[in-house]
Design a protein around this nucleic acid. Structure first.
Length: 379
DNA sequence: TAGTCGTGGCT
DNA sequence: TAGCCAAGACT
């Protein structure tokens, strides 16, 4: 690992901040240093690209202008505002933290990184970002950009995929943070990491800090940062049961034990949960259809005549799971009671008003393209 | 600690 | 295409 002298540190700060003042990005959440604005933007930006966040941020601020508005919002409105951003626990934690601020802190923000970590959804990175940008605390904000930028600048070869590596970087960066402008310093590092010092297609030759870039000076940019790769997503087969009656489509809201908590989908059944097939030559699909029909009858008192929706199964890949969803449909002439089924009927024209995950949108599109073009038409 | 948790862009 | 990456936190 490289060690910088006090003179080098001063030179680096000046070079970095001069560049940032000239070339730093003009982003909606950089209009001011309001902690609410900084906080919401930082949560949205977790594992999410800037261009994706911009329209969500603008809509979010129009819908929930203050932390009090967010604390008082109903969950459906909140989840709808977050729909498509992913990592949906961020949205629910955001509201939990808003309520913490309003009730536990009487609306007064904690102003240090150490205190900010007590708010749900604020970890070491986000605490450093808010503390430095909104309150001027001299602390690093170590995100993926900071890992990458300083791994290259200082030739730090610790594996950034390992949790204990964070403190290595925090200790290395802390003395370099500009004590006069810690927020600008941290944001400048992020802008650098999103431009000249990207993970792929980096351009260290034209970087404003190339003179400080030990990886570039020694021809080893591609070797930093060191990061072990994640395991491959696991294939998980599902059946989606599309039940249509005069009252609309049968939808279920995902509970707190599941991913996509609070969002609505067609009923989904794990293929692995269905009664096992015989060890004979019998058709698996037919057996599964029979098992699903039996389950709806006995558990929910719903009589379904299931048919397979044409086309390929819907495929949707998450970070650690790859869903393969076969669509089934049952058309009912009359609307049965849902006294035994944990879901509700929703008119085709009303489904889009609910918070829906991407996989549900894919299933709806596939269904429409397989002989039901007007199923979810908007009125 | 290592696994969990979404989606879109890009190669 | 399949895989990696993008302003991580939580358990």
């Amino acid at each position: 690992m490289e060690k910088w002298s006090a003179a080098t540190i001063r030179d680096f700060r000046r070079t970095l901040l001069d560049w940032y003042d000239q070339e730093g990005r003009d982003l909606p959440w950089r209009q001011d240093h309001d902690p609410y604005h900084v906080w919401v933007s930082e949560i949205m930006l977790q594992q999410t690209q800037v261009n994706t966040v911009i329209p969500y941020y603008q809509n979010f601020m129009a819908t929930f202008p203050t932390v009090t508005d967010l604390a008082n919002a109903d969950e459906a409105t909140l989840l709808k505002a977050w729909q498509g951003l992913g990592y949906y626990s961020r949205a629910r934690n955001l509201q939990r933290a808003a309520r913490q601020i309003v009730t536990d802190y009487q609306g007064h923000w904690p102003k240090t990184a150490a205190e900010l970590t007590d708010l749900v959804g604020i970890g070491p990175y986000t605490a450093g970002a808010i503390a430095s940008i909104a309150f001027g605390e001299v602390v690093p904000a170590v995100d993926g950009n900071a890992f990458r930028v300083f791994a290259r600048l200082l030739l730090i070869d610790d594996d950034i995929a390992k949790p204990q590596t964070r403190q290595v970087f925090e200790r290395a960066i802390q003395p370099i943070v500009d004590p006069k402008r810690p927020g600008a310093f941290n944001q400048a590092i992020m802008d650098l990491g999103a431009s000249y010092m990207r993970a792929k297609n980096s351009d260290p030759e034209h970087s404003p800090v190339k003179a400080f870039d030990a990886s570039y000076q020694t021809g080893r940019v591609a070797d930093f940062p060191v990061k072990t790769k994640a395991p491959r997503p696991k294939l998980i087969p599902y059946y989606a049961v599309i039940v249509h009656s005069p009252a609309g489509y049968l939808l279920v809201q995902r509970d707190a034990t599941q991913m996509l908590t609070g969002y609505w989908t067609f009923p989904l059944l794990l293929q692995a949960d269905l009664p096992p097939a015989d060890a004979t030559e019998t058709n698996n699909l037919a057996q599964d259809l029979a098992a699903i029909t039996r389950q709806f009858k006995t558990d929910y008192q719903l009589d379904l005549d299931l048919t397979v929706v044409g086309g390929q199964p819907v495929s949707h890949t998450y970070t650690h799971q790859r869903w393969r969803v076969k669509l089934l449909v049952a058309e009912l002439a009359t609307t049965p009671s849902l006294a035994f089924f944990p879901g509700k009927w929703v008119a085709g024209s009303e489904i889009a008003t609910l918070p829906l995950p991407k996989v549900q949108e894919k299933m709806m599109t596939r269904f429409q393209n397989q002989g039901h073009p007007a199923a979810f038409a908007k009125n």
